[in-house]
């Protein structure tokens, strides 16, 4: 398994070099951290020079940016959105609420640790992080893709039962996009 991950074919390396410069971010403001996204996207701390653009539909986005805390009601919609995105996809946890609950650690309505529900690629520390910190972490993500190490999206298919059990413990309701998961896993031969 380790050999398969480190040896990439020439095509995969070229694909990584091209795709790392055109990552599209889903425009979904899930929590209070979203107030620092307009300065990052507009003229002052321009994010578009790295190729990162906001995109409105999850079917055409690569990065899911979870800006801050997630209440249980939003968590259900975020899991649905995550499953609708096409692989390879990257989740960036923004702020200290995704790490261990942050400011709302004793609240009855927010989730405490994001990577029990969906696999997370990188985290940005802060409450809230500055636009320069956001751009720094996007650069780290781009470097990780270039090296071929940004593979946490495969973890969702390998450990699907673990994630599903945690999701069902926290919120009820049918999560319907099971066919998308099977199709994606078959496509990438996982």
């Amino acid at each position: 398994m380790d050999e398969k991950m480190t040896q990439r074919s020439v095509w995969e390396k070229i694909a990584a070099k091209l795709s790392k410069r055109s990552l599209w971010m889903l425009h979904y403001c899930t929590g209070c951290g979203a107030i620092e996204l307009p300065p990052t996207m507009t003229a002052r701390f321009d994010m578009e020079r790295f190729g990162i653009n906001p995109m409105v539909t999850p079917r055409q986005a690569d990065i899911l940016l979870i800006t801050g805390y997630l209440s249980v009601k939003t968590l259900k919609r975020v899991v649905l959105t995550y499953e609708q995105m096409q692989a390879p996809k990257y989740v960036v946890g923004f702020g200290s609420c995704t790490i261990n609950g942050g400011m709302y650690w004793n609240s009855y309505a927010t989730m405490k640790s994001l990577d029990r529900y969906i696999p997370v690629e990188t985290y940005i520390a802060g409450c809230m992080p500055r636009p320069e910190a956001i751009i720094y972490s996007f650069n780290e993500l781009i470097a990780k893709i270039d090296r071929g190490e940004a593979n946490s999206w495969k973890d969702y298919y390998n450990n699907y039962d673990f994630y599903r059990e945690n999701q069902e413990h926290t919120f009820e309701g049918p999560i319907e996009t099971y066919n998308d998961i099977k199709a994606d896993a078959a496509l990438f031969r996982i």
Partner: peptide, 19 residues
């Protein structure tokens, strides 16, 4: 949840997973 006999800290520690 806003009633005084509901303690949010106990509920959060029991129900959610922390890292």
């Amino acid at each position: 949840p806003m009633r005084k006999d509901f303690i949010t800290r106990e509920f959060a520690l029991n129900f959610y997973h922390y890292r």
